[in-house]
């Protein structure tokens, strides 16, 4: 989807990393089964995280199989074979979100690769829409809400992030076993904050690009950034954004603590408590460092 959700490999046990990879491969294989070879390129770690998180709630013991891989033909890797409906769901959500994302970026910049990608995913995305008509209708309504906020040049990162937060809330809201009423409620709040984190982090990451291309970015409007003086009040901006991002992460983490996880707990903890923090700090530091270089020149 966006690729901000990653494990912090350095702090992971080998076994945990193997399991995470096996989830990734399982989602990848599921995409192939549904849509063919090429759409596999749309796969991101985000979908693997979704599969890890949802299947942590099921008490089916983990099983994996060594399998060949068409993308890496020389390597044989482990693939998770249990919780297959959850893995299928993660694959479907990955496809539908990638499709909407490509369609949106084609509308924005008319790039060929986006046109090609969305055409490639169209048929498969149509099948997902048929399977989850309600969910996709909600996502589409939120997407058009997002578009409205963008044309209105919304100057609040909180408000601008809300539609995407709603989308992730919908994505995490898996219906059926092993998710019950209680864990569903927790997953919704977790998803809301996850979406918020992704959207604001992405906005921070894209400030320079959006200034150049003159495309919408909530932070540009909230902090009145101009191209001539992009780092005018960088400290305020970074302080406010960092607080906001860390607070969403603290909410994600405390929501996770409430989930009754039967497995994968240490993997989810690694991703939420460390991987996502590392990504946040990396992007904040990149912005902070850009200023220092600018000053010395």
């Amino acid at each position: 989807m966006f690729g901000y959700i990653n494990p912090l490999k350095a702090e992971m046990k080998m076994r945990e990393y193997e399991i995470f990879k096996a989830y990734y491969c399982a989602v990848c294989k599921s995409i192939k089964k549904k849509c063919g070879q090429l759409p596999r390129l749309a796969l991101s770690y985000d979908a693997a995280f979704l599969a890890v998180l949802l299947s942590s709630l099921s008490d089916v013991p983990l099983q994996a199989k060594r399998m060949n891989c068409a993308v890496h033909p020389l390597k044989k890797g482990s693939v998770i074979t249990t919780d297959d409906t959850i893995i299928e769901y993660a694959a479907e959500m990955n496809i539908i979100l990638a499709y909407y994302n490509l369609k949106d970026s084609f509308k924005d910049d008319k790039s060929l690769s986006a046109a090609f990608g969305s055409a490639l995913l169209k048929r498969c995305a149509g099948r997902v829409k048929k399977k989850y008509p309600q969910k996709c209708a909600i996502i589409e309504a939120l997407l058009s809400q997002q578009e409205k906020l963008e044309t209105a040049k919304c100057g609040s990162m909180d408000e601008a992030a809300e539609p995407f937060a709603g989308i992730m809330q919908e994505v995490l809201c898996y219906e059926g076993e092993p998710v019950n009423k209680k864990s569903g409620e927790i997953l919704r709040w977790l998803g809301y904050n996850l979406g918020k984190w992704i959207y604001i982090l992405d906005a921070l990451d894209d400030i320079e690009k959006d200034l150049k291309k003159k495309t919408y970015n909530p932070l540009i409007y909230q902090f009145e950034i101009t191209e001539d003086n992009p780092d005018d009040d960088l400290e305020t901006l970074l302080g406010r954004v960092e607080f906001n991002l860390t607070h969403t992460l603290s909410q994600i983490s405390s929501s996770m603590e409430l989930l009754d996880m039967k497995k994968n707990k240490s993997i989810a903890e690694n991703i939420i408590n460390m991987g996502m923090l590392a990504k946040t700090e990396q992007i904040i530091n990149k912005r902070g460092a850009a200023k220092k270089i600018g000053k010395s020149v």
């Binding site: 809300e162 809301y192 406010r240 607080f243 607070h247 969403t248 909410q251």
Partner: peptide, 11 residues
Amino acid sequence: NLKRGRYDVAY
């Protein structure tokens, strides 16, 4: 706003 998850405004 805190309850809504709008942490920047809330703060």
